[in-house]
Design a protein around this nucleic acid. Structure first.
Lengths: 348, 348
DNA sequence: TTGAAAGCGCTAACAA
DNA sequence: TTGTTAGCGCTTTCAA
């Protein structure tokens, strides 16, 4: 499958000799730096191709000396999922410092487009090599991202994307597909039982929630049309409010057989379910794996948690920023974030 | 969350100065090499702690010069899952060579303990830095693994473990949990319908299949005891044989409502199902994501594929071997292989 | 437009 | 038991 490659690996010097130029010239060609005659470029390129030469990353990293700085722009507040991402970045401390990388956490109100845009604009002069941002999809945010990109900073969007911007990469899941997955699971687990389906979200104005709702409705309409979907209620991701709303729905509709929580506030929803004594009859699906959802899965109140792996997202963001900064290729397959279906027996 | 760490990062030299010793002594302490007075060790350790010093991996890698060689011992034959792992290793070619790493594929009959043990023994003298092996759990294999470990080679087991050996790491899923997951899904998706459950495996003498069966039966007995489990049949992971066996079962039992394929041969099983015209009525669950299972999921014949991500396993094996070889800590959380539940809407 | 040469922060051989 | 020193393969001035 792989040739053992007995000869000791080639170096820049070997390429230089073969192309009849100096080290510095090969380096220039390798990094598309100006000031090399087209003909020379060609000769060097040929030598590189011919040997399928790969510069030694460790040597490159050492020689350039300068440490790299990344910034993570994250929401203020106690969103457990975001806190997990931060925690995983924290766990990478040793890994990061052994590579002379630093990550700075910048907390801001990512839900206010002008505040978020301002935070990003501030980073434009801050000579960051890369920025990861939990981005609201809004024209001023898009503009701020594009400015950052133009200033030479690598930008990845995290969890929530701005597809119309020129960000280099998006680290997160396809939320429409996540909503579809939720819909398919509710429908399949409800099975033959007739009844109604309740759905609660944080707010419809967040792109990820809106997309999940869209995907969910799509599947319900096309495949489980015998089930009636109740009008969506908005719990603002808060436990108390979610609990009240769901209590109300449960009181009004004794024939609810399925319940989908699009955002946070799962603890409140679960409380309403158990206080009504209907946690065993109603198929309950929510997002994200937290201490709370884990407990609810184990005790059977929650049937499925749909999640994205926060550790994977944190590490993927750092790796992608690093690869972009080094102009290395990205292992796309590796950095893709999957939609995890978690049930009691496959909890990580 | 992280101090910006303005000062330029410390180097070995700084530590040496602080501890009042030379570079070489710090290096000795850092790598637990002998020949340093206990008192000196203590002084150096203190300086390292005090500054939470992390040696620069790039510099270390460069200075040590030597390229590292890893071997992957994989089964001969056309097992699609194993072929995928090999393919993902192939995709890493650039990444590997930029780090002066080489991976050699060694194909052997991993199902014959003496053949596998002999293959491993051969590697003992081959100055490999690390070996990843799809390991059969057998005393002679265990002995061969232990010999490799004793000779200084880092060893990880891949997909299939030998827990009683002294291998440094296992890269793969918990197969009992995978079987439990399959059981829970069959039970939940069958729902209220009464009927029988069929189960087919490659062979019960493979540890991973045996464990999955164990987990499956556990859940079925404890939670879905109204469903009758038919006696297990063995398809030897072959399509034709599996098809015949399942056709036979379907003919004999018109009341089968669920079907679990523990191993390969999913194509044959699916063919039997569709030819009986019962692919829509019967809940069908199998393992691994291949071109075939993907197609079956999309067309609705297969309801769930339980899988482990072969790309992740391939990369995790390489990363873990590299970290072990460098005596770097492993990011355990990152290298853990999850049990993926794949349905039509969350296909990657 | 090109080349020479001084490091980057470690490791390892050798000397003391 | 400890220290000195010559690289490892690049990047980056600076000079030509």
């Amino acid at each position: 499958m792989k040739e053992p490659d007995t000869s000791s690996p080639l170096t820049l010097k070997d390429i230089a000799r073969q192309a009849g130029v100096s080290l510095a010239t090969v380096d220039r060609v390798l990094h598309n730096r100006p000031g090399v005659r087209p003909d020379t470029v060609r000769r060097v390129r040929e030598a590189i191709e011919r040997n399928s030469f790969q510069p030694h990353v460790a040597a490159a990293e050492l020689a350039r000396g300068r440490a790299r700085r990344f910034a993570f722009v994250m929401p203020v507040g106690a969103n457990p999922f975001m806190l997990q991402i931060e925690a995983y970045i924290g766990e990478m401390a040793g890994w990061l410092s052994a590579r002379r990388l630093t990550v700075e956490m910048i907390k801001t109100d990512v839900f206010d487009p002008s505040v978020l845009a301002a935070s990003l604009e501030q980073l434009t002069g801050g000579d960051y090599d890369g920025v990861a941002v939990v981005a609201l999809d809004h024209p001023s945010v898009r503009a701020a991202i594009n400015d950052l990109v133009d200033s030479g900073t690598k930008v990845v969007t995290l969890v929530s994307d701005v597809p119309s911007s020129r960000r280099h990469h998006y680290i997160g899941i396809d939320n429409i597909a996540a909503g579809r997955t939720a819909g398919a699971l509710v429908g399949r687990l409800v099975g033959l039982r007739p009844g109604k389906i309740a759905i609660i979200a944080g707010t419809q104005s967040l792109r990820d929630h809106a997309e999940r709702i869209f995907g969910f409705n799509q599947v319900m309409a096309s495949e489980f049309s015998q089930l009636e979907i109740l009008p969506l209620v908005e719990g603002r991701d808060e436990d108390d409010r979610s609990e009240q709303l769901i209590s109300g729905l449960l009181g009004k509709h004794p024939d609810i057989v399925g319940l989908y929580n699009v955002g946070a506030g799962t603890q409140g929803v679960a409380k309403a379910l158990t206080e009504a004594g209907r946690e065993k009859q109603i198929v309950f699906i929510a997002h994200d794996l937290t201490a709370m959802t884990r407990k609810l899965l184990l005790q059977g109140t929650l049937d499925v948690a749909i999640s994205q792996n926060p550790g994977h997202e944190a590490r993927a963001a750092v790796r992608v920023l690093l690869s972009l900064a080094r102009n290395e290729p990205i292992l796309i397959e590796q950095e893709k974030i999957r939609i995890d279906i978690l049930m009691r027996d496959n909890l990580p």
